[in-house]
Design a protein around this nucleic acid. Sequence first.
DNA 1: ACCTGAACACCGTTCAAGT
DNA 2: ACCTGAACACCGTTCAAGT
Lengths: 190, 190
Amino acid sequence: MTKQPKIDTREAIMAAARSTVQKDGYNALSFRDLAADVGIKSASVHHHFPTKPDLADALVKRYREDVTALLEPLADLPFAEAMNSYVALFRSFFSDCNQMCLGGMFSAEVTALPEAVNVSLRLFMDAHTSWIERVLAKKHDRMSADELNARAKAVFAALEGAQLVTRGRGGDPAYFDEIVKSYQAIGLLD
Amino acid sequence: MTKQPKIDTREAIMAAARSTVQKDGYNALSFRDLAADVGIKSASVHHHFPTKPDLADALVKRYREDVTALLEPLADLPFAEAMNSYVALFRSFFSDCNQMCLGGMFSAEVTALPEAVNVSLRLFMDAHTSWIERVLAKKHDRMSADELNARAKAVFAALEGAQLVTRGRGGDPAYFDEIVKSYQAIGLLD
DNA sequence: ACCTGAACACCGTTCAAGT
DNA sequence: ACCTGAACACCGTTCAAGT
């Protein structure tokens, strides 16, 4: 085994930045705080990520990769388990400092980001909706592609909204659960 | 009629601040930019709102009043019209610079705000859910109070989510409409 | 009461300089 | 390649000073 300490600093920056963004948002992210977290100076952060939007773009792309890797195996589960696991993913954010989906946070702060990051953000959301579409297709074999797509967008939007509203109320998982229960009662997650 | 130019500056600050927050967020709000918009110096803004959280709290409270005044007459409409008007309210944000509900924005940026503002934010969301509850009650006369309440929370969360996701995609109203159509198809808005 | 300039410690960014 | 100190124009906030 050869040593590979080269990308450690870059990875450490991304990990610290992602955590801060999910907790406090992109506009609250400070290169100086970030540098302090990692143990370097703020000017050094710019060596790895020239500008703040460059860091934002890297974060969204990595986040998309991570979520995709996490969702991939879940798509093979039976429908109810796949959907329950998906809901559980959105619920899991509250257990660590009332965090928020990075995609939802960037959607709120979208005007602070250049077009290139907006494109990455759309790709992230597409990854979600196409996963949902795939899962829904297993159950609704008579539904048209357009219907499945529209339904997937609705499921994603509804869960992002449940997370946002719950976060606004302090991140009480019980509040999130109550909303999800209503979604289930109406059949949105079926 | 006696002249009343006294609160004009304060009102102008609040109007400019509200617009900026709905477009770019609370963390992107600058007292210096705000002062320039109104035509005074940034130190003068602090005379009306000692700190930034003080301004945030005033904004949320006023926003709640405005939304309440706007929703009140709509509650007396027939069910379908009341609900359609409510959805139209969420849709209307995109027509002016891809804005966002101030409550949703503050929910995303909630960690930047002190507890006092969080309380005002909860009251704002309560105003929404109790209005929805009232409208739903007209149609579902056999539904229990708890069910109505849970359903109202779900409707609010779903619409906030539809707005958030649409904003993240550039604010195309057609995207919002597609999600709402799915909500309607499933019966969430009935 | 309402406004201001100046100061403070912050911020993202740049750049010449180090190793 | 990776890091740094110093500088720039920003930020929220404070305060003594004006009217």
